[in-house]
Amino acid sequence: MSVSPAQLGQVLSAFERNFRERNELGASVSVWWQGEEIFSAAQGHMDRTKSREWAESTLVPVYSATKGPASATLLMALEAKGMGPETLVREVWPAFPVAEATFAHLLSHQCGLAALDRRASVWDHTEVVAAVEVQEPAWRPGGGQGYHPRTFGALVEEPVRRLTGRTLGVHFREVLGEPLGLEFWIGLPESEHHRVATLYPGKADKSDLEEGFYSEFHKEGSLVRRAFSSPRGLHSVQEMNDPKAWSAGFPAMGGIGTAQALAKFYQAAIGAIESPLSPSVRAALAETRIQGDDRILMRETVFTCGCQKDPLDEAGNKKRRLYGTSAGAFGHPGAGGSHAFGDPETGLSFAYVMNQMELSVFPGPKSTEMIEGLFGE
């Protein structure tokens, strides 16, 4: 396919509408096609005082949009040791509590370790790992899937430390971030702190709280609530605005960067640019591992080794289009609305980041309307 000026015009129109009609404060969007950035827009302000203008170089926390680059980092570390998705986790991490689990199971949220019974602080990796090692899985591989919103960080961090002797964030910069020139960090250097925008939480209305996911999320003791509260700490947006959180390097939710960096990462992930990502790592990021009802997100999900895709019906048609029109497109959203993905079929990648968050489990109209315009919907 080719991308027409009209399609890019639709992206820009939707981007600008967010500021007029959807309470956007500051945001960036980046679109790449077959190795080149073909569209970029940045507008608004880095905080509500409006004293700092938002630019293409503005950095912002992207929450779970971190999971794609973090997963690629683990897959690269495994490959460097002659291992891969089918390797048993216990070959690297002997005390891992699910004996039959492979890294493919771990990266596709099939290990049943979304919630921890033992109290552990998100700031103490050793404590979290100890809690994981004694955790009885809520389900096991073959028993379905359930998104691991927070524990995913320790699940990918610990193997990378064992394989490389470095934190995941440091290894990411060495093997991916710096070679690709990505303005993206999992553990932000203090020298870049001045570039970070302030996040503002979304607001809930009554209908949000009554919906399936949020009903379970607010139910004391539910698996959903426990998954989003373990390990403990960093539960408020205000805490994520603390420079301590920017530098900590949490692989599940601590990535900070630009829209351009995320879109370029997915160009590498779909093989549209030369990169350190091998064909086998790209295939692991792209290939569906499981589709079904999600025990945590309370709706149908599709997971690859570290990314998400749109679910398909029996005829192979998409049931939703968060990742455009192609069945093979994959990526990962972040809490509040950030979103990024790549499409191997068209050679397109897309990323959107912002600082005025929305209350939504999946990407909302601020990004999906741009995606619809990009794919000529």
Score class of each variant (00 low, 15 high):
residue 333 P to L: 03
residue 177 G to D: 05
residue 261 A to E: 01
residue 125 H to Q: 14
residue 118 R to S: 13
residue 340 A to H: 00
residue 35 G to A: 05
residue 107 L to T: 01
residue 117 D to Y: 12
residue 7 Q to E: 11
residue 2 S to R: 12
residue 344 P to Y: 01
residue 365 P to T: 10
residue 303 F to M: 13
residue 129 V to M: 13
residue 45 H to N: 11
residue 44 G to H: 06
residue 373 G to Y: 04
residue 81 K to G: 02
residue 104 A to M: 07
residue 56 E to Y: 00
residue 310 D to F: 05
residue 368 T to Y: 00
residue 311 P to C: 08
residue 304 T to S: 14
residue 131 A to V: 02
residue 59 L to R: 02
residue 262 L to A: 07
residue 168 L to W: 02
residue 113 L to H: 02
residue 337 G to W: 03
residue 293 D to N: 14
residue 24 E to W: 00
residue 292 G to W: 11
residue 57 S to V: 11
residue 21 E to Y: 10
residue 49 T to P: 00
residue 336 G to L: 05
residue 157 E to C: 04
residue 18 N to V: 02
residue 215 S to W: 13
residue 43 Q to M: 08
residue 281 V to P: 01
residue 244 K to I: 15
residue 16 E to D: 15
residue 354 M to W: 01
residue 68 G to D: 00
residue 233 G to L: 02
residue 231 P to V: 03
residue 321 R to I: 09
residue 147 Y to W: 05
residue 52 R to E: 14
residue 121 S to D: 14
residue 35 G to K: 01
residue 372 E to F: 11
residue 359 L to F: 06
residue 88 L to G: 03
residue 363 P to W: 01
residue 152 F to H: 06
residue 103 F to G: 00
residue 197 A to H: 03
residue 209 L to G: 09
residue 110 Q to I: 13
residue 227 A to K: 00
residue 102 T to H: 03
residue 127 E to I: 08
residue 65 A to S: 12
residue 224 V to D: 01
residue 7 Q to P: 07
residue 312 L to K: 08
residue 95 A to E: 15
residue 168 L to M: 12
residue 181 G to S: 09
residue 327 A to W: 01
residue 37 E to F: 04
residue 62 V to A: 00
residue 219 K to S: 11
residue 230 S to I: 03
residue 299 R to K: 14
residue 190 E to Q: 15
residue 320 R to M: 13
residue 271 G to Q: 08
residue 275 S to C: 13
residue 186 I to F: 09
residue 245 A to P: 07
residue 369 E to I: 01
residue 353 V to S: 07
residue 181 G to Y: 07
residue 332 H to G: 02
residue 281 V to A: 04
residue 117 D to V: 13
residue 314 E to G: 15
residue 294 D to G: 07
residue 209 L to C: 09
residue 58 T to Y: 10
residue 13 S to N: 13
residue 189 P to C: 06
residue 173 R to S: 07
residue 116 L to I: 06
residue 287 E to G: 03
residue 129 V to N: 07
residue 279 P to W: 13
residue 269 A to W: 00
residue 281 V to Y: 03
residue 74 L to S: 08
residue 201 P to D: 00
residue 147 Y to K: 00
residue 49 T to I: 07
residue 166 R to H: 14
residue 205 D to S: 05
residue 327 A to F: 02
residue 114 A to H: 00
residue 201 P to C: 02
residue 315 A to H: 13
residue 38 I to L: 08
residue 297 L to W: 08
residue 13 S to W: 07
residue 45 H to K: 11
residue 316 G to L: 12
residue 292 G to D: 07
residue 198 T to Q: 11
residue 133 E to C: 13
residue 104 A to W: 00
residue 258 T to N: 09
residue 276 P to M: 10
residue 57 S to I: 04
residue 70 A to C: 05
residue 118 R to V: 13
residue 35 G to C: 06
residue 75 L to C: 04
residue 146 G to Q: 01
residue 271 G to W: 04
